[in-house]
Write a protein that binds this DNA or RNA. Sequence first.
DNA 1: TGCACCTAGTCTCAATGCAACTAGTCTCGC
DNA 2: GCGAGACTAGTTGCATTGAGACTAGGTGCA
Lengths: 208, 208
Amino acid sequence: MTAPVKSSPLALTVLALLHYKPLHPYGIQQLIKQWGKEQVVNVGQRAGLYRTIERLHAGGLIAVRQTERDQQYPERTVYEVTDEGRAVAREWLDQMLAVPKGEFPVFPAALSNLPMLTPDEALDVLERRADRLAAQRADLKAQLAVHTGEGVPRVTLIEHEYLLAMVDAEERWVRAVTDDLRSGGLTWSPEMLAAFDEQHNSGAPAGG
Amino acid sequence: MTAPVKSSPLALTVLALLHYKPLHPYGIQQLIKQWGKEQVVNVGQRAGLYRTIERLHAGGLIAVRQTERDQQYPERTVYEVTDEGRAVAREWLDQMLAVPKGEFPVFPAALSNLPMLTPDEALDVLERRADRLAAQRADLKAQLAVHTGEGVPRVTLIEHEYLLAMVDAEERWVRAVTDDLRSGGLTWSPEMLAAFDEQHNSGAPAGG
DNA sequence: TGCACCTAGTCTCAATGCAACTAGTCTCGC
DNA sequence: GCGAGACTAGTTGCATTGAGACTAGGTGCA
């Protein structure tokens, strides 16, 4: 009875690709890149990939199919998905799709400390973010256009559509905030914040 | 010459709170919860908080102010931010706000494997997600309303506004996809995907 | 021959997430 | 007064992740 394997984006993708055909680790990495999925699964550092494969292997979700020896290359182990692996992949996929997971991206955390800056400084950094988001958006749009032009079925690009929608939404939001900062509709000052603080904080936690 | 401390949402928030007044670790946790920031910084398991504080201390960004002994409670170490800590907090904040960081949330990774499901199954799980997103959205809206009603300055709720905008955008996107699935505007079948695959994959990577 | 770069895989370290554990205190009912 | 359960406060351990360095052979080219 091996411990259940924890799901992760990379683990799911590995199972899914092996579902499609047996592969060796490097082949998996190549496929991920070839299909443009390196934007949604972190396969940049190979270490993670090899560890994930080990983990799946130890958990019995994948099995060694053969060990190739293509002289000039090191030995390459070809894996295939097991029946259990197929079942688990389905469960993971259902769970990951149906249940939004509470993750902690850095941007909202940083935003929550916006009062540390002056409104002018905030305007400046947020404009820089908006510009970078615009660049990302253009990139994603271009990629989508290329693939759609090649007649790739839409469902295989769905995650790109999602990324585009999210980047677009974030950019809109940031621009709305910068507009408010410029117009003065959103502003603050240390005095204003301190004043509010006193109203509400009679019994403040320990301090010096 | 200590190694530079790596930024993290929690580390930034700790520095920011200490900026405001010296505190002991538990007080920091309380403040984070009191200000509703536990939704953007992961302070749920205290272990992370204590480790972060240690890290900041080792890096010279915070210093021990005093060691309280409130008999009946264990010893509590009160920390304050150093000048270097203030400077570093500023740098982190600028960086985190201005530069969108490539993170790898699970949803897009899962989406990229949507073809593993049938369109009907996809419709089902995505509807479940949309409903959960709707619940989250209602929650966030209610919280915002409460705080706004109390006259809290808008800038201190800005991260909530952001979360709301993102949840809203995601829900809209998911609903648009479920609509397309229902109408048949988005569909696929194993044959269709296999056919496309053959067109493009003459030289496929190793297999069995 | 020397140099840069690519392929393929391994190793290490710090950081994170998650959960269990200790140990004292407070509260409430009985 | 006393035990159950909850809260306060901090510690410990383990598996996973992220990021980078390192090995070691192969290829192109000047």
